[in-house]
Computed example of a mutant assay.
Amino acid sequence: MSPNVIEEALAVLCARYIFPEKAEAAAAAIRRREQAGEYAGLDERQLGERLTAELFEICEDTHLRVRVRGAELHAALTQDEMVAVYREQIKLANYGIARVERLDGNIGYLDLRQIPEASMGGRAIVAAMELVSHTEALIIDLRRNRGGVPNGVSLWHSYLFPDDETHLNSIYDGESGNTRQYWSQAYLPGERYLDRPVYVLISGVTFSAGEEFCYNVQALGRATLIGQTTRGGAHPTRFFPITPTLEITVPIARAVNPVTGGNWEGTGVVPDIEVPAEEALATAYRRALEHVLAGSAAAAVQEEARAALDGLAPAEPAETVAA
């Protein structure tokens, strides 16, 4: 492996990482190891894994990685080329929406695996929210959500708040020194999802923009989080190709929540109700059905909810995590 590959990765790290002092310290440590011949004979995958581990030793940043690029990216070396690949990938992934369903008892269910860029996935988000707009409660499953784009998060969230007066999140950009605020939107196609409970399912896989999704609604008291603590990556990231087959992903910004003043980096998002991730859906569904039965839903919906609740396995005691 050419030493130039390592040096190019370190140059990007030092120029773009949101924490410059950590970047310089990590680069110095890696250069010492490179001079000692510790990377000799490693192929690209081995080198990426080794550098990623060593970057984490100093920076403790789960977004900071050196890794082999997917085959579809080998010819994508400019930003425009990488955006074109992303556009095709997110379209084929149905803009991250794996499943939209009305569960018995008139409970809405969304399984979101990615958060799309709003200008690309907006129509799909609107369509999904239209399909659950008349349900009695909503379950949003982020247990397999590995991230996405902040403006997509703000579009999803806008459906959960009544107007444009909810400050959702802010992102500080290291290169420009500017902070961008993300607010709920004044106008949305279709109906907003208001005055009904929302349950968000999380796990140790939930990451990045998926974590922002749940952190924001938890901080604002708009949803109940159920499952396990998330992975803990709060730094928006860009991908920089080092060769056609190797890239470094570098956090260039950091989230600053307007309610907490902080973010979930390194700690993850802690659920309100802690249960094993595989039990989170059943736990949320039970609570949603109990909400229906305690309310004024139509008789047919109440009957359906009672039958669904009777069909669930007996509930195990759930651990409520103190705020």
Score class of each variant (00 low, 15 high):
residue 317 P to K: 13
residue 316 E to N: 15
residue 256 V to N: 07
residue 57 E to K: 13
residue 88 E to S: 10
residue 136 E to M: 13
residue 224 T to G: 11
residue 187 Y to C: 11
residue 209 A to H: 04
residue 221 G to K: 00
residue 169 N to T: 11
residue 298 A to I: 12
residue 294 A to T: 03
residue 318 A to L: 09
residue 256 V to S: 07
residue 152 G to Y: 10
residue 267 T to W: 03
residue 259 V to L: 07
residue 102 R to H: 09
residue 263 N to G: 00
residue 206 T to D: 04
residue 30 I to M: 07
residue 160 L to Q: 04
residue 252 I to R: 08
residue 191 E to Y: 09
residue 54 E to Q: 15
residue 217 V to L: 11
residue 60 E to V: 14
residue 115 I to Y: 11
residue 166 T to A: 05
residue 292 V to N: 06
residue 136 E to C: 12
residue 210 G to K: 07
residue 229 T to P: 07
residue 300 A to K: 15
residue 264 W to Y: 07
residue 119 S to L: 13
residue 66 V to M: 15
residue 312 L to P: 11
residue 135 T to M: 08
residue 256 V to W: 09
residue 19 F to N: 15
residue 104 D to V: 13
residue 162 P to R: 00
residue 198 V to G: 04
residue 131 L to Q: 15
residue 307 A to R: 15
residue 206 T to A: 03
residue 265 E to A: 13
residue 313 A to M: 15
residue 306 R to E: 12
residue 301 V to W: 07
residue 154 S to E: 03
residue 235 H to D: 12
residue 38 E to A: 09
residue 83 V to P: 08
residue 103 L to M: 02
residue 226 I to E: 00
residue 178 N to M: 14
residue 179 T to E: 03
residue 248 I to P: 10
residue 173 D to N: 13
residue 247 E to V: 00
residue 263 N to L: 02
residue 191 E to Q: 11
residue 116 P to L: 04
residue 318 A to M: 14
residue 273 I to F: 10
residue 81 E to T: 01
residue 173 D to H: 10
residue 2 S to Q: 11
residue 262 G to V: 06
residue 228 Q to N: 00
residue 182 Y to C: 04
residue 110 L to I: 00
residue 25 A to R: 14
residue 101 E to T: 04
residue 206 T to C: 00
residue 167 H to I: 02
residue 24 E to M: 08
residue 27 A to T: 05
residue 279 E to Y: 08
residue 14 C to M: 13
residue 57 E to L: 14
residue 38 E to S: 06
residue 232 G to S: 01
residue 98 A to D: 09
residue 180 R to Q: 14
residue 111 D to T: 12
residue 35 Q to N: 09
residue 288 A to D: 04
residue 103 L to Y: 03
residue 241 P to W: 01
residue 196 R to V: 07
residue 159 Y to N: 06
residue 198 V to S: 01
residue 147 G to E: 06
residue 243 T to Q: 08
residue 141 D to G: 02
residue 32 R to G: 12
residue 152 G to D: 00
residue 215 Y to V: 00
residue 198 V to T: 01
residue 312 L to E: 11
residue 246 L to P: 05
residue 195 D to N: 09
residue 184 S to I: 00
residue 270 V to L: 12
residue 258 P to H: 02
residue 221 G to E: 03
residue 207 F to Y: 08
residue 86 Y to W: 05
residue 88 E to R: 11
residue 278 E to V: 10
residue 212 E to Q: 06
residue 15 A to T: 05
residue 141 D to R: 00
residue 232 G to I: 05
residue 300 A to M: 12
residue 126 V to T: 14
residue 128 A to F: 09
residue 52 T to W: 04
residue 36 A to V: 06
residue 97 I to L: 15
residue 67 R to P: 11
residue 298 A to C: 11
